[in-house]
Amino acid sequence: MHSQIKKIFPSFSNELIAEIEANDSIKSFESGSTIMRTGQYIKNTVLVTKGQIKVYREGEDGGEFFMYYLQPGQACAISMVCATKNEKSQIMAKVVEDAELIMVPLSLMDTWMMKHRSWYEFVIHTYRSRFEEVLEVIDSIAFRAMDERLEFYLKRHKDACGCKDLKLSHQEIASELNTSREVISRLLKKMEQRNLLKLHRNHIELLK
Rank of each mutant, 00 (worst) to 15 (best):
S3N: 15
Q4M: 03
I5R: 05
I5T: 01
K6I: 06
S13H: 02
S13I: 02
S13R: 01
N14Y: 06
A18K: 15
A18W: 09
A22Y: 11
S25T: 12
F29T: 06
E30S: 15
S31K: 14
S33L: 04
T34A: 11
M36W: 00
Y41D: 09
K43R: 15
V48N: 06
K54V: 03
K54H: 12
E58F: 07
G59P: 01
E60Y: 02
G62Q: 08
E64T: 05
F65V: 09
F65T: 15
F66Q: 04
F66M: 04
Y68N: 07
Q71Y: 15
P72W: 09
A77V: 01
I78E: 11
C82E: 00
T84W: 01
T84I: 07
K85F: 12
K85I: 02
S89M: 04
S89L: 10
K94T: 12
A99E: 00
P105G: 14
S107P: 00
D110Y: 11
T111M: 10
W112H: 08
M114S: 05
H116K: 02
S118I: 02
I124S: 12
I124Q: 02
H125R: 13
R128P: 01
S129W: 14
R130E: 12
E132I: 12
E136H: 10
V137G: 01
S140N: 09
S140V: 02
S140F: 10
I141D: 06
A142R: 06
R144E: 14
R144D: 14
A145I: 09
A145Y: 06
D147N: 08
E148T: 03
R149C: 08
E151Q: 03
F152Y: 10
L154R: 04
D159F: 05
D159C: 09
A160C: 02
C161F: 10
L168Q: 07
S169M: 07
H170S: 14
E176Q: 11
N178Q: 05
T179L: 14
E182H: 12
V183Y: 05
S185W: 08
L187R: 10
L188C: 08
Q193Y: 13
Q193E: 14
R194F: 10
N195Y: 07
L197N: 10
H200T: 03
R201W: 07
I204N: 06
E205G: 04
L206T: 07
L206C: 11
L207P: 13
